[in-house]
């Protein structure tokens, strides 16, 4: 998971770009609903099929509750707190780890991008650690940190740290030389150049890194909670699997999907507000 840091950024940016252009060029005024009517119908049909297969007993399985039961379980879980409390605790740990990991990642990324020698020295160490899939880091960390909040916050911080760092560094390295030379012409000091020239020019890259990181952070929170469960939504999902309460489990998965989607949307909104020069590099 850590390996795939710079790529989604590229893909994401290119994707949005391509979407914008292709929409503008190919289908100027076709309403959104019109082009997707068949697709929405397909989703509806699948849901109906799900409901019918469970209700009419086409699928004879303990683990195949009808869709309406999942919705009911989600509603129950939210009103009595069985689902909303683990969600909130997961989100709290995720945000704590995310904040720590991203601030460190951006700081170290600026440092590595700004100084060649430090980069040569530190980057290979990072390259050795990077290919380890995140779940494999959890067991040794359990030895040090136990299975409570500290572990999850640390793992999330570690997972967010890497994309934040890599993207920040790439952003710094990609800063237009003319900008730097202009700053030098005006005899701007190093700190001032970093803060007033390099940082704003790097912000779009940093933002992409932070967005990759927020997606990762949610996944990693859930993964850590599943492997070293003591609380949270990941633990809840595994518990419901063991308890043979598939409706509650699917409800949790559903709620997680919504959370992931919302986080991504919020991030994009914030990005557009805070960095209006994004994508105009």
């Amino acid at each position: 998971m850590i390996q795939s840091t710079a790529m989604p950024r590229l893909g994401g940016a290119a994707r949005r770009e391509a979407k914008r252009t292709s929409r503008a060029a190919v289908q100027p005024a076709r309403p959104w609903l019109h082009t997707r009517a068949s697709g929405l119908a397909l989703i509806l049909a699948l849901l109906v099929l799900w409901e019918a297969s469970a209700r009419l007993g086409w699928v004879q399985s303990q683990s195949w509750p009808p869709f309406s039961a999942v919705l009911a379980a989600a509603w129950r879980g939210f009103t009595d707190g069985e689902l909303s409390l683990p969600l909130l605790s997961s989100l709290g740990r995720m945000l704590a780890g995310y904040a720590i990991g991203c601030s460190l990642g951006v700081a170290v990324g600026l440092l590595l991008g700004g100084n060649r020698w430090i980069r040569y020295l530190v980057l290979p160490v990072l390259e050795v650690i990077r290919p380890i899939p995140i779940p494999a880091i959890v067991p040794p960390l359990i030895l040090f940190l136990g299975i409570d909040d500290a572990l999850k916050i640390f793992v999330v911080a570690l997972a967010s740290f890497v994309p934040a760092l890599i993207n920040t560094m790439a952003g710094v390295l990609g800063v237009d030389d003319v900008l730097l030379q202009t700053a030098r012409t005006f005899r701007t000091g190093w700190t001032r150049t970093m803060l007033r020239v390099v940082l704003p020019a790097t912000l779009p890259a940093i933002a992409s890194g932070l967005r990759v990181a927020i997606g990762l952070a949610l996944v990693v929170t859930i993964v850590a909670e599943m492997i070293a469960g003591s609380a949270g939504l990941g633990y809840y999902i595994v518990q419901m699997q063991y308890a043979l309460r598939p409706d509650a489990m699917y409800a949790a998965v559903l709620c997680l999907a919504l959370t992931g989607y919302t986080l991504n949307r919020l991030f994009l909104l914030g990005e557009a507000r805070l960095i209006p020069w994004m994508g105009r590099g």
Partner: peptide
């Protein structure tokens, strides 16, 4: 947008 890790227990079931 579904975190795929969350689907693992569901698939086990």
């Amino acid at each position: 947008p579904l975190p795929k890790s969350a689907l693992v227990p569901a698939l086990f079931l």
